[in-house]
Structures are given as structure tokens and as C-alpha cells.
Design a protein around this nucleic acid. Structure first.
Length: 925
RNA sequence: GGGCGAGUAGCUCAGUUGGUUAGAGCGCCUGCCUUACACGCAGGAAGUCGGGGGUUCGAGUCCCUCCUCGCCCACCA
């Protein structure tokens, strides 16, 4: 039957590099990844929509393992749903990434010895657009290499004209609803990026700094009285407008109302009382610098103090318009940290520096360039968050949205409960310009969906706000804007919103996920998705997060080139438990990705076996095989297949809540991809390949009707195995599936990618007994192998195996070729054999395996062990029986508990019976 | 400072409501190039389940306590 023609067809070594790109192209050409609005049930079609919106990578990004992991997860889920028959849509896209992209451009310019000011705003943007056009989207091309089945026709870009319409609409709507306002307050300022940042963009890091105690002389005091303040940032003292003490602080009560002389600046500032001061910290005296500290700003407002700014945007010392001459000439233009040193030296000289303490405190850094941010008073646009947060909070509380792993829900809720207003204006050039125009002649402010060229009121000239919007102000709209919002008649929006799952890294839970949920409610009145799946982090062997700058990263494309996309995907999926980090060794790709590569090779070789042994002749359909044609191994593998399907389904879980919101019992199940991968792997490798495939060899070689049955069942089992694995390993499964000699049925789809997902059927009692019986055979084979190994019997030596079985003589007789071949033994069932000089194995059902050996075999050890077990079991039984005879227990315990205890006792009794038999067999009468 | 999570085999992790001998992958040891596969096959060693205490006939699992890591949040200058 096997021909050289066919085997030549599949090379002996799987070569992913030679096949993957071509398969991907065939999928694309056939439109396999394209979703159709009309097929969605919400648009009158007959399919449930299933939608994932891809977290848009930065347009300048190149693929790293984090993307690899994240997008593999999404692709597995979307491919699974596509096979189930959903109208599956995965929306891809990129983010224009305001600060990040602008930083890259500025670096480019700097390398040419230029600055963005040299170019001017217009030219700078032109150049950035050109750069993005040229290099942007590279990452999306790279995603194709790992098999991402996104609908590329719908590729979105946060800065595209279409999506920009949505950004304006969102701004104007919120403005009209009173949720966007301009605020004059202290915000986080990055002196390197020269822009304000949101609270989330200013990241804390714990640092050891100094706490400087500085003496401010009290004005008009008798004996050189001073007030000592403590500060970590002495340079800001030049902006002090008061010193504050707690109103009830007896130490300072009589000083309130007097003044101190601010050193260096030589300005008199008042001593005020405010509850904000903690008398127990430091000296109980706080310097108040309203323009450079958010708390001081609040104090300043309460006391109607002036708020001089004493620093330039770039972090050098300077007198702003309202600062007079607070900053002395010699400090002007000096960087804030240098100024800090100089001020300290000056104070030291004037004996006003009382002491310096080491101090542990959190310092905020820019999340883009890691520069220490400066609190700074300025005008910014803000979104009022509390009203938006309410429904977002409710959604997670009531189960409309679930977050996996579960523990992140608490983090999410905690953040939303303490939500603060969102600073959305950035002093950058790269981004959506704020849609606000100012008329200088009549001093009005126009907020508009369309560009404004003249003042509505006075017809005078207008100028648009110079600032741009926070990047996240466009990405928070992604699930709606990519589907056509604000065009409410958009077919895509109707068909695919709300979406289903959102898969991303926990780092952007607040930046992005929470805000998307808010936007979903604010603009669509509905949650954007029902499931948030937060992946783990990719780390190296020292548990350090992989990053380009640390040089411990892995380029997914290197892995694809060396071992194939499937190896990458399988390794990632199998190695990542729910929410767990993934450890990989950048110095040893071979070892890191061995699980995936090895498994792909295994699949490949099963395919080669099929091709050479089953051949290309169409097989019979398993549906038409009658019960009495099926052998024990056939029934066993079909039952195991069913179990595997069931386990995969259970691990992947319900794709959506059954009744709109998640019920408690379904809320945290599903999306356990590593369990799904393991179930599928175990079936293919440990059951199909290790056992069933072996049983077919002699049958197929023998030919005849039974060979046809074996061919049919083997092909069917492998067909379904490939289906189960396709979401994880799309390329190799598609390649092999294309060559299967499947039975001719009317609607065989062209691609495995859209072939049906297997459906599990409940096991009948016959199937269950097939499993039990065949497992006994496996046990027998195992026992023989162990005996061989224990007694170092060479493979070539034949063994006579006698089996004494009271129940399964038939099973062993039927399986004797199997036992014989796998162990190179001959088997006789119910044969007489002397126990002297023989190795024994007692199977779980009491069946004895007797293998005559040359030497003497000691059974004493086994006997002692079994007796111990029996003793233990008796003890357990005893106490359980006592409990079940206890009136008090029966009356108090719930019925189901009593019942389960009774069942347990029955099981144990049965087990005891078996064990006793074993003991008898092994230890002798 | 507040909140959360984790400590199980050398490594990465599973362990459902307490219940037979605590599992998997990788690594390790032994023997095999057995015509699908040495990226493989067969067999094996290896865990006082972070420490201590408690509840129970029985604890990796429940309770208390301590230790060690990690994460998120935070305006005490």
C-alpha cells in the first residue's frame, strides 16, 4: 500500500520555513480571516459574532515576545471561535503613540544636529507622517509571521482620518456634557519631553533621598528665633509663599500670623495654620510652594496665596512673570538638581541648614523617558472621571464584565473608586490637536467637531489650542472607533459591538482597559466586552522582564525562522498558566522552545506514518462503522478522543456569558489555554501515538476488512486531533490536514481553519468499559516492560507471559499480539505457571501477571507494602464507619454530605476487597 | 503607608468540595538508532508541599502565626 511517491511527498524532517508563508497566503487569498457584517446574528445573519479588538501596538514598535504572547493568545481564541462557527472578527491596528513617536523623531533630528524647533510644527508633523508611512505597520506584517488571523481589511490606526473623527466627537460630546474642562492646577510635568502627563503616566519608584531641615528666621522675633522646615526638594523653596503649621500645634500656635524671611529669595512670607500639616512628621512645619506641589497648591487656594512659578518648562531655574526676583541671578538657567546642590551649599554657609536626614520616598518618573517629573502649575484640559467611572465600576461588580485572573478585579475596583480627573492635554506636536479655538478679540472659546476659521460671535480671527490630546484619548475609543463610531448607522458597529474578549498586559489596565470600559458606556451605553484577560509577563531565567534595552529579549521572528511559528505558539501557550509569567531563556532558544518544536515534529511524524501506512485512498467514515467491526483499541481511542474534546472545551470555557452577565459559577472558568494545550497534547502523544497508532500497525499490515476499520479510525482520530490543535498550531495542522484521506462528505471545507470544531458526545457504558478494559491492557504491557527493565532483559530475549485473570481472559487473549509485540513477549492467558522463580505483577483488577525468570524473585517487599496499605485502609474504613453509625452526625450533617460519605465507604469497601485479593496473591495463602 | 498574590521535584508550574502511592513539561540517570519520529522509545531516581502551631480518624488543601519573594496603589513635606 505505501508508495515511495507518497512518502516522498512529506519530507522526513518538518521544515516550517518552507511551508508557513505559502499557507498563510492561501488563507488570505481565500478570505478566511475576513468577517462579514451580514453574517452576524445582530444583522440578520445566522452566526453569533465573536470579536476581539487587538491592543494596538505603537506604530513604531517592532515585534517582541510580549506581543508574541499576547497575540498568540488572541489568535488561539479567535481561531477556536471561527472553527466553532462564530462570525469571528479580530480587528488589528496600531497606535500613533504621541510621546513615544515624537521622542523617536526628536532623537532622529538630534542625530542630524537639529531640533524640532528648527523644523517648525508643520514640517515636523510632515516628517513624522512620512516616517510612520514608511516604517509603521511593520509590526503588523510581523504578526502575520506568527500566524495572526486578523481581518487585515479592517486594519485601524488611531491617527487615521476616520478614527480622528471619533476623537473629536468624543471630545465635543464630553465637553457638551460638562465632563471636559480646562483646569489651572499642579500637574506632572516632564522636563525632558516638555509636556504634562497624566497621573498614570507618572510612575512611582521608591528612592532614597535626603530630607533637608532648613531654618527660616522669624521676622521681628527677639532672639534670632527660627522656624525649621523639612523638605526633599530645597530648590522649590524659592517658590515658597508661606510656612504652615497645624492649628492645634502648641509649639507654634503663637507664631501663626507672623512672618518668616525666606532665605536666598529674601522675601517675607506668612506663617499660616492648616489642618493639612501633620505635626508628627519632621518638624511639624511645612513650606508652602503652591506652584510646585499639588498639596501646597490646595493649601494655597484655601489661603488665597500667590503662586509664583520659579522654574522653566525644561527644569531650569527661572522667574516666571509672577515670581519677581525670587530666583537670584546666579541660579537662573541652572538645572533643578544642580540648583538644589547650590542652594544647600549656600544655606550651609549661612548656617541655615540645620540637618540632612536620609529619607525613603517615592519619586515619580516619566513613563516614556524615566526623567523625574516636576509638579508644575499650568493650564490643562481634564476629563471629569467620576461620572464615567460609575457604570464601569458597576459592570465589574455585577458580572457584566469579568477580569481574569480574578484578583485583578479588586485592583480595578480600587482604582475606579479612587478615580481622579484625567489630564488629557499634552504639549506635544504629534497627536490629535485639541478641537478648541480661541478668539482673541471677543475672548470666546469655541469647541467644534469641524475646523473653525472665524469666530462665531464676532467673526474675528481664531487660533486653535496648541496642545494635542493624550494618546490614550484616542485608544480608549478603539473598540467603537474601529467599528465605525461615531457613525451610528455603521453596519460593523451594529454587527460586532459589543465585542467579546480583550486580551492585554496588566500594565495597561488603567491606561487603557478601564478607560475603554468608560468610553463604551459613555458613547455606546454598553460595555465594550464581557471578558478582560490579563496575560503574564515574559521574563528571562533570572525572572527579569524581557526588554530591548536590557538586551535580554527574544525576537519572535528568530524563533519562527529556526523552529516555526507553531513551535513558538505551542511553547507560549503551554507554558503560561492563567496570569502566570512565562520564563524563557534568551541565551538558549533551542531549549526554550523545545516543547513546541518537539511536539510539532511528533505531529509531523504521525502524519508521515499515516501517509505511508494509511495511504491516500479515501477511508470509510467512522459513522458507518458498525459496533461489532470496532476492536477494543478502536473503541478505546474513540472514547479517549471524546474525553479530549470534552477537556479542551472545558478548558477554553464558555465563550460568552450564557445570560448576558456572568453567573458566579461560570465567571472564572475558561480561557485556561495551558490546560487546553495539555489535554490536546496528551491525547495526541500519549494516547493516539503511543498506543493506538501502535495497535494499527499489525492490523493494517494484515489487510482485509479490519485494516479498513483501523485506517478509518486512525484517520478520524488524527483528523479530530488536528482540529483540536489548529488554534494553537495553525500551520502544521493545516498542512497535514490537507493531505488526510478523509472520507468523502458533501461539505468538506477547503481549510482546516474553517473546518468544524469537534463536538463531544456523552460516553455510553460500552465506551466506558472499553476504556477500562484497554487501560488494563496498557497496565499489563507496562508491567511486562517494568519487569524487563528491572531484570535487565535484553529486547531480543523473548518472555513467556502468563496471565491469570478471572474476569478479563478474553481481553488479554485479544490483546496478546499487542502485549507480545510491544514487549517482545509471548502471552498465554490462563496458562499454568509455577510462581517459583517468576516475576509477578498484580494489576488493579486483581489479575496476576506471571513472567517466568531464570533467577529467584523476592516478593517479600511487595507483600509488606501491600499489607501496610491494607492496614491503613482498614483504619480509615473503621473511622468512617463509626461516623456513619453516629446518630449525631447523621442528624446534623446535610443529606448530600451523608450520601457522599456513604458512597465513599462503598468505594473503599470495594477497594479493600481488591487489595485483600492482591495481598493473597502476592503474599500467598 | 494601604491592598493583593505567591512559596509543591534541580527549573517552570498543575493539584477541583480535606480521602488510595502528590502530578506534568524541561532537566537528570539507565537501556535502546525497534522501517512515523534519537526533536525519538522504554524504564527510573528525585518532593518533611516555606517554618511553627491548631481543627480532624485523615491536611498540600481548612484556621492561627511567623518568615521570604512578587505585584498594584498612595499628596506626609
Amino acid at each position: 500500500m505505501p508508495t515511495t511517491e507518497q512518502t516522498r511527498d512529506l519530507p522526513s524532517q518538518y521544515d516550517p520555513a518552507a511551508t508557513e508563508a505559502a499557507i498563510y497566503q492561501r488563507w488570505i487569498d481565500a478570505g478566511v480571516f475576513s468577517a462579514d457584517e451580514k453574517r452576524s446574528k445582530r444583522n440578520g445573519g445566522d452566526r453569533d459574532p465573536f470579536v476581539i479588538v487587538m491592543p494596538p501596538p505603537n506604530v513604531t514598535a517592532v515585534l517582541h515576545m510580549g506581543h508574541g504572547l499576547n497575540n498568540t493568545v488572541q489568535d488561539v481564541v479567535i481561531r477556536w471561535r471561527r472553527m466553532v462557527g462564530d462570525e469571528a472578527l479580530w480587528v488589528p491596528g496600531t497606535d500613533h503613540a504621541g510621546i513615544a513617536t515624537q521622542n523617536i523623531m526628536e532623537k532622529q533630528l538630534a542625530a542630524e544636529g537639529k531640533s524640532k524647533a528648527d523644523l517648525g510644527r508643520e514640517k515636523f508633523i510632515e516628517r513624522t507622517v512620512a516616517f510612520v508611512e514608511e516604517t509603521g505597520g511593520e509590526i503588523l506584517r510581523q504578526l502575520r509571521a506568527i500566524g495572526a488571523s486578523a481581518d487585515w481589511n479592517r486594519t485601524a490606526y488611531t491617527f487615521s482620518p476616520e478614527l480622528s473623527v471619533g476623537v473629536r466627537e468624543a471630545f465635543v460630546q464630553l465637553y457638551e456634557r460638562g465632563l471636559i474642562y480646562r483646569g489651572h492646577r499642579v500637574i506632572h510635568w516632564c522636563p525632558r519631553c516638555l509636556t504634562s502627563l497624566s497621573d498614570e503616566e507618572a510612575e512611582h519608584s521608591e528612592e532614597t533621598g535626603s530630607l533637608y531641615h532648613i531654618a527660616y528666621p522669624v521676622v521681628g522675633a527677639k532672639k534670632n528665633e527660627t522656624l525649621t522646615v523639612a523638605t526633599t526638594r530645597p530648590e522649590t523653596m524659592l517658590g515658597d509663599v508661606a510656612v504652615a503649621v497645624h492649628p492645634d500645634d502648641e509649639r507654634y500656635k503663637k507664631l501663626v500670623g507672623k512672618s518668616v524671611l525666606l532665605p536666598i529669595a529674601n522675601v517675607e512670607i506668612p506663617i499660616i495654620a492648616d489642618e493639612y500639616v501633620d505635626p508628627a512628621f519632621g518638624t511639624g512645619v511645612v513650606k508652602i510652594t503652591p506652584a510646585h506641589d499639588p498639596n501646597d497648591f490646595e493649601v494655597g487656594k484655601r489661603h488665597k496665596l500667590s503662586m509664583p512659578v520659579i522654574m522653566s518648562p525644561d527644569g531650569t531655574m527661572a522667574n516666571a512673570a509672577d515670581a519677581g526676583h525670587r530666583v537670584p541671578a546666579e541660579l537662573i538657567g541652572i538645572d533643578r538638581f544642580e540648583a538644589r546642590e547650590r542652594i544647600i551649599r549656600t544655606l550651609e554657609k549661612s548656617k541655615q541648614l540645620v540637618k540632612v536626614e536620609s529619607h525613603q520616598h517615592a519619586v515619580r518618573h516619566c513613563y516614556r523617558c524615566d526623567t523625574v517629573v516636576e509638579p508644575r502649575l499650568s493650564d490643562q484640559w481634564f476629563v471629569k472621571m467620576e461620572p464615567l467611572a460609575k457604570p464601569a465600576l458597576q459592570a465589574v461588580r455585577d458580572g457584566t464584565i469579568r477580569i481574569l485572573p480574578e484578583r485583578w478585579e479588586a485592583v480595578y475596583i480600587n482604582w475606579l473608586e479612587n478615580i481622579r480627573d484625567w489630564n488629557i492635554s499634552r504639549q506635544l506636536w504629534w497627536g490629535h490637536r485639541i478641537p478648541v479655538w480661541y478668539c482673541d478679540s471677543c475672548k470666546c472659546e469655541i469647541v467644534s467637531r469641524t475646523d473653525v476659521s472665524a469666530c462665531e460671535k464676532c467673526g474675528g480671527a481664531v487660533r486653535q489650542d496648541d496642545d494635542v490630546l493624550d494618546t490614550w484619548f484616542s485608544s480608549w475609543l478603539f473598540p467603537i472607533s474601529t467599528l465605525g463610531w461615531p457613525d451610528k448607522s455603521s453596519a460593523a458597529l451594529a454587527a460586532f459591538y459589543p465585542t467579546d474578549d480583550l486580551v492585554t498586559a496588566p500594565e495597561i489596565l488603567f491606561f487603557w482597559v478601564a478607560r475603554m470600559i468608560m468610553a463604551g458606556y459613555a458613547f455606546m451605553g454598553a460595555a465594550p466586552f464581557h471578558t478582560v484577560y490579563l496575560t503574564g509577563t515574559v521574563r528571562d531565567m533570572n525572572h527579569v522582564k524581557m526588554s530591548k534595552s536590557l538586551g535580554n529579549g527574544i525576537d519572535p521572528l528568530d524563533v519562527v525562522a529556526a523552529y516555526g511559528a507553531d513551535a513558538l505558539r505551542y511553547t507560549v501557550v503551554a507554558g503560561m498558566g492563567m496570569g502566570a509569567d512565562l520564563m524563557l531563556d534568551p541565551k538558549d532558544l533551542e531549549r526554550s522552545f523545545a516543547p513546541g518544536r518537539n511536539f510539532a515534529t511528533k505531529l509531523w511524524n504521525i502524519g508521515r506514518f499515516l501517509l505511508s501506512n494509511v495511504g491516500s485512498q479515501t477511508v470509510r467514515s467512522v459513522d458507518e462503522l458498525s459496533d461489532d467491526e470496532l476492536t477494543l483499541p478502536d473503541r478505546w481511542i474513540l472514547a479517549r478522543l471524546n474525553t479530549a474534546i470534552f477537556e479542551c472545551d472545558a478548558a477554553l470555557g464558555p465563550a460568552r456569558p450564557e445570560k448576558g452577565t456572568w453567573r458566579q459559577e461560570e465567571r472564572y472558568i475558561g480561557l485556561r489555554l495551558s490546560e487546553y494545550a495539555e489535554s490536546a497534547r496528551r491525547f495526541v502523544w500519549n494516547e493516539l501515538a503511543d498506543w493506538y497508532l501502535e495497535t494499527t500497525k499489525t492490523r493494517i499490515a494484515a489487510g482485509g476488512d479490519d485494516a479498513e476499520v483501523a485506517r478509518a479510525v486512525l484517520t478520524h482520530a488524527f483528523d479530530y486531533a488536528l482540529r483540536l490543535l489548529h488554534p494553537i498550531m495553525p500551520f502544521i495542522t493545516e498542512t497535514l490536514w490537507q493531505r488526510l484521506p478523509l472520507p468523502v462528505i458533501a461539505e468538506r471545507p477547503e481549510f482546516l481553519a474553517v473546518a468544524g470544531w469537534p463536538i463531544a458526545v456523552p460516553l455510553g457504558s460500552d465506551d466506558k468499559s472499553a476504556v477500562t478494559q484497554f487501560d488494563l491492557v496498557r497496565e499489563a504491557v507496562g508491567a511486562v516492560r517494568q519487569i524487563r527493565s528491572d531484570y535487565s532483559i535484553p529486547p531480543a530475549t523473548m518472555l513467556d507471559v502468563s496471565i491469570r485473570s478471572n474476569r478479563h481472559a478474553r481481553v488479554f487473549k485479544d490483546s496478546s499480539p499487542l502485549i507480545g509485540r510491544l514487549s517482545r513477549s509471548t502471552v498465554s492467558v490462563d496458562g499454568q505457571s509455577d510462581t517459583a522463580g517468576a516475576a509477578h505483577a498484580v494489576l488493579t483488577d486483581g489479575t496476576e501477571l506471571i513472567v517466568p525468570l531464570g533467577g529467584i524473585v523476592d516478593l517479600k517487599k511487595e507483600c509488606t507494602k501491600l499489607r501496610g496499605e491494607l492496614e491503613q485502609l482498614d483504619k480509615q474504613l473503621d473511622s468512617l464507619t463509626k461516623r456513619l453509625e453516629n446518630e449525631g452526625f447523621i442528624s446534623r450533617a446535610p443529606v448530600h454530605v451523608v450520601e457522599s460519605e456513604r458512597r465513599k465507604r462503598d468505594e473503599w469497601l470495594k477497594r479493600r476487597e481488591q487489595l485483600a485479593e492482591k495481598v493473597k496473591a502476592v503474599c500467598g495463602g
